[in-house]
Design a protein around this nucleic acid. Structure first.
Lengths: 228, 228
DNA sequence: CGGCGGACTTGATGCCCGTCAAGGCGCCGG
DNA sequence: CCGGCGCCTTGACGGGCATCAAGTCCGCCG
């Protein structure tokens, strides 16, 4: 790998690597393997045995599971500068718990599990960072579970929208949807049709305004209390 | 605390403590606070700032969130010998992300956050144990999200039942429901009525047999492929 | 430009499932 | 023994949402 310097610079701001010494980072890079994926290409399947985790450098990757009836549930969308499949680091028999596939053409780096565990042993700060990150992930899962457990689709959509606006936001605020509406519909477990209808109903009631993938919430407070 | 020896014995088999030296365990116990809860008594509310996590010694505790319309979603049921709210260990501003309340009268021990973090710094083995546990939790959340995202209630119930049987189970197998049916219904986001009807339909079709909280799956394979 | 395909929207229809209500059953205290 | 109280079950009904099917809009490419 000779494009190391650019990669090393990217790593410096990543939670998994920022607390490591240069020497430790070098050890990781020595066993790192670059990889390219075409759009739609599969990276791994649920159940595959796993010896590495990944950093996405460009493009977009989805982690998903297939439901029995052929539908797919997207568990997470990976954006550039995010790592994923770190969970294989800590499993006794490391297997991927989800499938991973490139949405857009992607450029990524695979890090070796054992090498990283060796480095981790020497860096408590990185351990803490990992645990903090996992804590955040668990809480975002709780949010998602909370959304999915809501009885009707309107609540789920509103709950999802509220999850997009910053915690302390007030009044009027614009957000851009993080993915195509089809994908979002899958996230909140409704059909694209219902999502469309629900957004229309909300905008007819003057609660939001929709323009493409730009959604502006007219009054965050009102929308929040609209859930009650 | 003079009932220490019994408590110390319980800790020895717990993932958070088993890798610690006697001295480290002693440090933890020195700042541990025993606590009793009556049935229905609240331990903490979502959003409360948190300086400790808990080990349940007897009874039953539920972690839950209230939905806007007053319904509650149980995120996790805590059984004796389990710790909970460990996530407060790793948050920058530690707050409880869910509410906690005793279902049955409960006996528990509160451990001090800072003390535990101090011990954790000295034990990489415990770090690994924590990360492994969090990994398992994340994956069980994925399972739950997968369940909740299933479109109809029959699939959700079957998926839940299949989650109860051991991974490699085959043929006929009996499981006992881990909670009252009302609670399970909440878990899979259906009403108790629908759960009841679904179980009846499944047993009418000869797929399962229900007797109280004992459910025997007549043929795991058939039930599994029944999802497809 | 004009044809094509994919994403989104909108409409009509049917059915799943939530709601309400009435029973059956075990448990408890009187 | 009875009466009361939860929990579970079963029934009837209505609404919400998935499904199917057009229709619109837009980007793409020949």
């Amino acid at each position: 790998m000779q494009a190391d310097s650019a990669l090393a610079r990217e790593l410096r701001h990543h939670y998994l690597f920022s607390a490591l010494t240069e020497a430790q980072q070098a050890r990781l890079l020595a066993t790192a393997v670059p990889r390219r994926l075409a759009a739609g290409e599969q990276l791994f399947s649920r159940g595959d045995s796993a010896g590495q985790f990944f950093l996405l450098r460009s493009g977009c990757v989805k982690l998903y599971r297939l439901s029995p009836d052929g539908g797919e549930k997207i568990m997470r969308l990976i954006r550039p500068a995010q790592t994923f499949a770190e969970s294989v680091l800590f499993m006794d028999v490391p297997r991927f718990p989800v499938s991973g596939e490139a949405v857009d053409a992607a450029e990524l780096v695979a890090f070796d599990r054992e090498t990283f565990l060796g480095v981790l042993r020497e860096s408590f700060a990185t351990c803490r960072a990992v645990m903090a990150q996992m804590t955040r992930r668990i809480q975002s899962h709780w949010d998602e579970i909370e959304t999915l457990a809501l009885e009707n689709s309107r609540y789920r959509v509103v709950h999802y929208l509220l999850g997009l606006v910053p915690r302390n936001a007030q009044g009027r605020i614009a957000v851009t949807l993080p993915a195509r509406k089809m994908v979002i519909a899958a996230h909140v477990a409704v059909t694209p049709e219902t999502l469309s209808r629900t957004l229309r109903a909300l905008s007819d009631e003057g609660l939001i305004e929709v323009a493409g993938d730009e959604v502006t919430v007219c009054d965050v407070e009102k929308l929040r209390c609209h859930m009650h």
